[in-house]
Design a protein around this nucleic acid. Sequence first.
RNA 1: GGCGAUAUAGCCAAGUGGCUAAGGCAGGAGCCUGCAAAGCUCUGAUCCCCGGUUCAAAUCCGGGUGUCGCCUCCA
Length: 466
Amino acid sequence: MLLFNSLSKQKEEFIPIEKNHVKIYVCGPTVYDDAHLGHARSALAFDLLRRLFKTDGYQVTFVKNFTDIDDKIITKMTESKQTLEEIVTHYITRYKEDMHALGIEDADIEPKATESIEDILNFIQHLEDKGFAYVIDDGVYFDTSKDKEYFSLSGRSVDETQNQSRVESNSQKRDLKDFAMWKFSKSGEPAYPSPWGKGRPGWHIECSAMIKKHLASSGDYQIDIHGGGADLLFPHHENEACQSRCESDQKLARYWMHNGFVQIDGEKMSKSLGNSFFLKDALQVYTGEVLRFYLLSSHYRANFNFNEEDLLASKKRLDKLYRLKKRIIIDKGSSVNKSFKAAILNALHDDLNISATLAVIDEMITDANEKLDKEPKNKGLKKEIRSNITFLETLLGIGTMNAFAYFQIGISEAEKRDIETLIKQRDIAKANKDYAQSDAIRDTLKAKQIQIMDTPEGTVWEKIQA
RNA sequence: GGCGAUAUAGCCAAGUGGCUAAGGCAGGAGCCUGCAAAGCUCUGAUCCCCGGUUCAAAUCCGGGUGUCGCCUCCA
């Protein structure tokens, strides 16, 4: 398998630290607000990676943290008059609900910063003992000048950040790029005791400490893959890598993977621009699977320009899979077509080439439809198609619904009865060759966004979504 | 200001030196159908511009232009 490593800026063959075992750590959200499309994109990228490794037979240990103590959460506390506990519990629950709706499973381990304070403090202590830390008025800082390999991940040069940053240097920091590992608390802020004074962890330290606690191997590298959004490459991941390298004399991760951003109308989606698109809002309009398929349908490293037109085009592509599924109502499959499976895996093994993967799927669908047109009763054929779809369900998390239910989402039971009644009336009219009447009924249904289709098995219907 | 991505048909999007440049959506024609829908078949691109390397470039190199991102909390 080839993976694009942000460290080397090229695709590299994946070689696990431990045979048949992959250790992945992905930076999770700071839980101070509902999850947006960007969170989903990142989660989906690594969900796909995780599923692929499992399909390949690896044991996967997948860790995703929740940052549950942070300046933004404190701001939220002030605004909402809620406790830290109330806020983070609420948003962690909400995050998981939204992710589950997209077919994203929980990580194997989901550490929280506030539950890792002891590990964080030990980590800082060790760095101080080794001479990498210094204390100033507002916290304990990492002295980046002591790390010769600083910038090795992001590929920046020392010079370029000097006096170029838009951030004003506030403090007694020895160097602009030094960063806080522990922030002293002001009165009223949540605080934990520490050898240096009451406070809270800096942003970067939790990941380093959690990886050490939950995943670290003992060799050259602590873990196989470290992932997150492209924005985290610098400074977040640079700082994590730096801390862990200096603390342990090991490298943090062998492969660094960064997903591209979701844009709305060509602009970055962000809080500060006020164009955040929350998953909960998108899920009001589209099913989780439709959103999953859409957000998964372009390469994880490319920026993703979210818009409704493309989403509907993507949904039509997913519809084709479900229409095929409707044609092969059958209990059990046989086995996946070998060349189909190989083509899918071959595409995904090339740094998750999802476009090539989807092309293989579309070709399978066309081929299957063609064969079913010729041999509608061929059971062996249906079993193989069934197996092929099951393979996709597990690997990609798509096609998992009942094929009829998929096309009838949002229709109440009462509406369904009405539709069925009209269809029966139309069947009678058709039998009597009263086509004026049967067409009138079809038009009535169409006006209600219901498309009917006559098949050898009888008349079926779908909700039109466009 | 510094750094880094990216530019492929109306739209989305693969493809990194060599047969006719994947696939999907939209559009057009046909088959099927009482008519539709679905499905199937057929149908579309000198790959941003200019130079260069090469027998051969969308693909490599140089320059230009556009778009986007990072350097600040961010997925």
